[in-house]
Design a protein around this nucleic acid. Structure first.
Lengths: 357, 357
DNA sequence: AACGTTTTCGAAAACGATGTCGAAATATAA
DNA sequence: TTATATTTCGACATCGTTTTCGAAAACGTT
């Protein structure tokens, strides 16, 4: 904080100014530009904002002065006046690989627009429990950001003074301003892939039962079976809770059945990788004895041995879509329906044709 | 950069009549609080900012009104007045795994301070070439952020109106406001690890010769050899340029020598992984026939077969240190010397005792 | 009761930009 | 030339907050 001591309003001390004003603040304001160009501040503002009503000649002169002085408009001041900050916030629980692609998608889409990106990581707080979105939003909304994108909210999206888009691959599209992936379709595709390879006994390791995504993925699995005329066998469906260790138990149960499945569709990649480990430890060869397919396409999926066939969530595109939706909301348009992104099959080494008995 | 007309035309003309003024009207300002509490705005401001000179009784009353009305101070307005935004910016070339830990470290350290984090991805721009830091900084500095952290700058850090810290694992500490990892020490440690396992013929795959880190890592390698009384053999050092394919060539050259090395220290993990592949294709067993150690500890290092021994760059801590340094700069302190973070040995499966001839 | 001292409080001036509205300058029409 | 339409431009109020500085009030001391 600098206090210009002998600075009276009206006449700026310019003669000793060079040294003094440099040390106090070397910031070039719209006033400096106006003075240097011999016009009023309003004219400079009009030039900067390309408003109508400035003669070409003066515009050129002002632009020249701006370039000379290296003037940059103060985002803070203009925000205060126009009550728009041109910043959109992204609230993410944690900077994790999952959020990474999202950030890139958002960032890329935002480029070229007037908006900047502000990123928050929520749940790293000491008392980081659910509901951090609410606190952040109320603090930021209406004062620092024009809109927000929340990733995998832990709570119901709070009422906010700014438009909010939720990217939630798990809870399902709960409102119009939400984006998720086609869990049902993706699961169906994964299962169909196994069926097309000749598998008939296909197990399923379920996800967390409190998340909608788990139910949708199971439904997709069952739909694919039904479409192929394969009867549903409850014995082949076990709970994995999206977790590594529980999935291992589920896989063990499945593979030690009197008549074990020849393929497993796991509700997420973590479970799938765990299932592969389990199969190996049981002396089974993946994919020759057992095919395994997952869901998510986490980075490890491409690194494992064998590499994991899976269904990809298009995070980059989801980020881009979120921005697009948010921008149209900011433009005053009504967003009437949620966006659902397609999940695409990524066949890798962990799935192969069914073993011939 | 002054907003050109083309960009402005993309902005939806929000007529100041309806939606905008609605969102502004229901905002609770300091004035509303003052009026409701029966005090002046200055008093409210003092209460909010915990300034001295307000009676406990009035303070309590004001606080109560603030709670009732749900008043939140406008960050924009206070920034304008106090010329501080309480936002620090991080400029990163791209949201990549490398930057992820950094972000978490920064975010965690920032929590509990008055500052918020604003993240920028630079080189995703269409014309995204070197120098994006300069453009971003001049636009943000002094108006939107109080300070900045730049990750792996591609150019000399531009003169800026705000404090800047550079995190640069490659260029070395070029100025006082820079953070890097101890490349020399890390390389020395890696090499010493190989020596302690009994290796005497140790090869080195060098990094990009235009980066200081490559030279430092080679120096560390040579120092460790010298300390152990092992004479330096130029035949055992080949260029890998930090790249996968070039490292493969280097590895082939090394392993087809009449008297091949029993261990290789690669200047980065990418090269190390490539060397392992090469060794495998030559029929060598890692680590029984050949030990390989890398540098960086990229995520793949823990996933490969065998898992890669390496030297870890403490990204999380580097982020935390960057914040600490930046905060002290913002507090007006002089940062006199760069910070160098220790690199730690992560022994995994790719290194073992030297084969007995 | 009169005086000095310390607290407590409020009026008002910034911070830098935007947008309105009327005045001045210029072009067009009569 | 005069009257009118059209540009072009600048004075000024405003956005919500911080901060200074002097006035008023409260307190303590003779």
């Amino acid at each position: 904080m600098i206090t210009p001591s002998a600075e009276v309003s009206g006449i700026p001390e310019q003669s000793p100014g060079s040294a003094l004003s440099q040390s106090t603040t070397n910031r070039v304001t719209i006033n400096d530009v106006a003075q240097a160009a011999g016009v009023s501040v309003s004219t400079v503002s009009k030039v900067v904002n390309a408003r109508y009503g400035v003669a070409p000649s003066t515009m050129e002169r002002v632009l020249q002065v701006i370039a000379e002085l290296g003037y940059e408009t103060s985002l803070v001041a203009s925000s205060l006046r126009s009550s728009r900050t041109n910043i959109i916030g992204i609230l993410v629980a944690e900077f994790e690989p999952f959020a990474l692609e999202l950030l890139n998608g958002i960032s890329a889409t935002l480029r070229g627009t007037q908006y900047d990106l502000m990123a928050y990581a929520g749940n790293l707080a000491p008392g980081g429990r659910a509901g951090w979105e609410h606190r952040s939003l109320s603090r930021l909304g209406g004062t620092l950001i024009d809109g927000a994108i929340i990733v995998t909210p832990t709570v119901e999206i709070p009422h906010s003074s700014v438009p909010v888009i939720a990217i939630d691959p798990h809870a399902g599209t709960s409102g119009p301003a939400a984006i998720d992936v086609d869990n049902f379709g993706g699961a169906k595709t994964a299962t169909e892939h196994l069926i097309s390879l000749g598998h008939r006994r296909i197990g399923h390791i379920k996800g967390r039962s409190d998340l909608k995504s788990a139910h949708l993925r199971e439904s997709g699995y069952r739909q694919a079976l039904q479409d192929a005329g394969i009867s549903y066998d409850p014995q082949l469906v076990h709970d994995g809770d999206y977790q590594r260790d529980l999935a291992a138990i589920a896989a063990t149960d499945l593979l030690t059945l009197p008549q074990p499945p020849t393929a497993i569709f796991a509700a997420n990649d973590l479970s799938a990788l765990s299932a592969i480990e389990t199969a190996k430890s049981l002396g089974l060869n993946v994919p020759n004895d057992l095919s395994v397919i997952g869901f998510d396409d986490i980075p490890e999926a491409a690194q494992s041995k064998p590499t994991l066939s899976t269904v990809r969530q298009p995070m980059h595109e989801m980020g881009a879509t979120a921005v697009t939706l948010l921008l149209s909301m900011l433009a005053g348009e009504e967003v009437t329906q949620p966006a659902q992104m397609p999940a695409s099959l990524i066949p890798r080494e962990s799935t192969a044709t069914a073993p011939q008995p």
